[in-house]
Write a protein that binds this DNA or RNA. Sequence first.
DNA 1: TTCATAATAGTAACCATTACTGTCTTGGCG
DNA 2: CGCCAAGACAGTAATGGTTACTATTATGAA
Lengths: 149, 149
Amino acid sequence: MVTIMNKVQANAKPAGLRMTRQRRLILEELDAPGRHPTADAVYQQVRRRIPNISLGTVYRNLEVLSQAGMIRKLHIGSGQKRYDRKLHKHYHVHCVQCGRISDLPGGPFGDLEEVARGNSDFDIIGYELEFEGLCRQCKDSSPRQREPN
Amino acid sequence: MVTIMNKVQANAKPAGLRMTRQRRLILEELDAPGRHPTADAVYQQVRRRIPNISLGTVYRNLEVLSQAGMIRKLHIGSGQKRYDRKLHKHYHVHCVQCGRISDLPGGPFGDLEEVARGNSDFDIIGYELEFEGLCRQCKDSSPRQREPN
DNA sequence: TTCATAATAGTAACCATTACTGTCTTGGCG
DNA sequence: CGCCAAGACAGTAATGGTTACTATTATGAA
């Protein structure tokens, strides 16, 4: 596991990280904007180019990359973890019907941390905020079931 | 699974729910204020009074009770689910070091939903907000590892 | 008291994720 | 360019939390 990154530049990789074909394709998969795929979804996609890639490789890379700060790991709802190319600070809405996840412009809400700091003896270092609702499709058409992404 | 509750009064159970010894003790376990136990922690506690209670029974009851709105299911961090007797609207802080969870007075932040509503075509129905930080003990003493509760 | 059915104990199955192992690749260095 | 230490890989087994199944028991309305 990579713990220290002593050379992080724009588009650069932390020291000790090699750029393999697998890793590059996984990153590319996350580069498409507006996607928040699960590990398995990344696996299914990359598999079309490297048919014998291992699911473990996908998990390991997603972990390493998020440790290195190149992607973000999201804990949304109670299901699988999701991964996001972290470009700018933003939030997510989560459809309780079909599971779809969308980006939400706006924020950050810095004052939330202030309120928390005033009310607790914890050393507040941040917060996780996820909105829930019904997406367009589930709102006005018959709800479809469980599409991951 | 209970889907409809047509008779909910103060301290009353929804129609169709029977009050068994197991269910009562599980509820009592959650009644102690300031606790946010995992399913397994509830299991360990109740087991001292009903030694042969089944872990499945605990899970099923926690599910049924939260469906009935009598308790709240929390998804905090990436670990196990936690359960909370839902008395009033409040938030939680989560120690990233030891995993401890504390209540946080203050809120609700109703304006968050307004902002989200303005920025999305989702039908926003709520949000999940969890703060993260270091608890008192982990802040100034040597950190202890992973106490659930 | 009766009796339909909710709930239980015990156990097996499930699913996402992590760990392990022996082999292969990468990339810094000469 | 070729060497080679160590990072990464594929394949597979193991883990851990949670859910599903089944035959039996207990609840509570009539």
